[in-house]
Amino acid sequence: MRRLLVLVVAVVVLAGGATAYATWASSSRPSAPVAAGFDAAEPGRVLVRSGGRVASVPAADPGAPPRVSSRACDRFYTANGTTLCLVVRPGPLPTTQALVLDRSLRETRRINLAGVPSRARVSASGRMASWTVFVTGDSYSSGGFSTWTGILDTRTGYLITNMEDIPLYLDGRRYHSADVNYWGVTFAADDNRFYATVATKGKTYLVEGDFGAWRARTLRENAECPSLSPDGTRLVFKKRVSPGPWRLHVLDLATMRERPLGERASIDDQAAWLDDHTVMYAKDGDVWAAGVDGGPPRRMIADATSPVPVR
């Protein structure tokens, strides 16, 4: 029944324009203006959403007044001059536009999607972009949600709008199920390997994927919204705990040992790494930071979400 509902939603949303799911193209409409001189690739800054718009603060002085652009995004991420901006388009059935922006936050490509935005990520090189939208439900705490996760190679234009058909191996065996959902992709430095969450039969798993070979395998249970460290050795993710529902943990990929962060609040976010020792995340309308050594969290940027470091 859930799959039928998803299909009905997709058909209604895409009627008259289904090719938008199979192709991407530069928009023929003018981009929204952005603040003169705003540079999303300026090193040494942290980009955030402030008042719904993309803004930046100095990493060395995150309490400084933000430099705010006029580019509004509901979710966004940026790396090496490529920004992915997800924008909700309201209507009888809400839809999302995935905008690929340059370092000046000017639109270069646009993809029309069903559903409402949930996650956005760009690989460190700026080449690979991924997003997750809710097509039913609106929360990972809901038992009735369904997600579509897409991946775009911005260099070649190759687009996968929904990765749920990727061959999946669970405990070494090829796995098939109608209830598979993916979300929260994070890319390795080679622009090929990636990590994500898959949910099926009431469980969540951390998966490692190979984009070129187009396959994925589970690594462990109970891991959601992973984010790979800059050195590629660790993942921070949210884990279901009691009481919870979640607590941030860090996983050493060499040993597969995990430990909780010092942040004890339940965080529903895909954390971002400020550096190899510190992660950032949204909590209570502000950006917080916590060391992966288990030290206490600290409020980093007031009235902001979606933190992204520019290296």
Score class of each variant (00 low, 15 high):
Leu5Asn: 12
Val9Ile: 15
Val11Tyr: 02
Gly17Thr: 03
Ala22Ile: 04
Trp24Thr: 15
Ser26Leu: 09
Ser28Thr: 15
Ser31Pro: 11
Ser31Met: 02
Ser31Glu: 11
Pro33Glu: 11
Ala40Lys: 00
Arg49Pro: 00
Gly52Arg: 11
Arg53Lys: 15
Val54Phe: 03
Ala55Ser: 12
Ser56Ala: 13
Pro62Gln: 06
Gly63Leu: 07
Gly63Trp: 07
Pro66Val: 13
Pro66Ser: 08
Arg67Asn: 14
Phe76His: 01
Thr78Pro: 05
Asn80Pro: 06
Thr83Val: 15
Thr83Pro: 03
Cys85Glu: 04
Pro90Val: 03
Pro92Gly: 14
Leu93Tyr: 04
Leu93Asp: 03
Pro94Asn: 05
Thr96Cys: 03
Asp102Thr: 08
Arg106Cys: 05
Thr108Phe: 06
Arg110Phe: 05
Arg110Gln: 14
Asn112Pro: 00
Arg119His: 14
Ser123Ala: 12
Ala124Glu: 12
Ala129Val: 14
Ala129Pro: 05
Phe134Ile: 08
Val135Thr: 14
Thr136Asn: 08
Gly137Asn: 07
Gly137Asp: 08
Ser142Arg: 09
Gly144Val: 11
Trp148Leu: 12
Ile151Arg: 01
Asp153Gln: 05
Arg155Tyr: 10
Tyr158Ile: 13
Glu164Ala: 11
Asp165Gly: 09
Pro167Ala: 05
Pro167Gly: 02
Leu168Gly: 06
Arg173Thr: 13
Tyr175Val: 04
His176Ile: 02
Ser177Leu: 04
Ala178Ser: 13
Val180Pro: 11
Ala188Thr: 05
Ala188Arg: 06
Asn192Val: 12
Asn192Phe: 05
Phe194Arg: 00
Ala196Thr: 03
Thr197Trp: 03
Val198Thr: 11
Ala199Arg: 04
Tyr205Asp: 09
Glu208Gly: 06
Glu208Ala: 12
Gly209Ala: 13
Asp210Ile: 09
Ala216Gly: 10
Leu219Phe: 00
Asn222Val: 00
Ala223Tyr: 01
Ser227Cys: 03
Ser229Met: 12
Pro230Cys: 12
Asp231Tyr: 04
Gly232Arg: 02
Gly232Pro: 01
Phe237Val: 11
Lys238Pro: 03
Lys239Gln: 11
Gly244Cys: 06
Pro245Glu: 09
Leu248Asn: 10
Leu251Val: 02
Glu258Gln: 12
Glu263Gln: 15
Glu263Asn: 10
Ser266Asn: 08
Ile267Thr: 10
Asp269Thr: 08
Ala271Tyr: 04
Ala272Lys: 08
Ala272Arg: 12
Thr278Lys: 09
Met280Leu: 15
Tyr281Cys: 01
Asp286Met: 10
Asp286Lys: 04
Trp288Thr: 06
Ala289Asn: 02
Ala289Cys: 10
Gly291Phe: 04
Gly295His: 10
Arg298Met: 12
Arg299His: 10
Ala304Pro: 02
Thr305Phe: 02
Val310Trp: 04
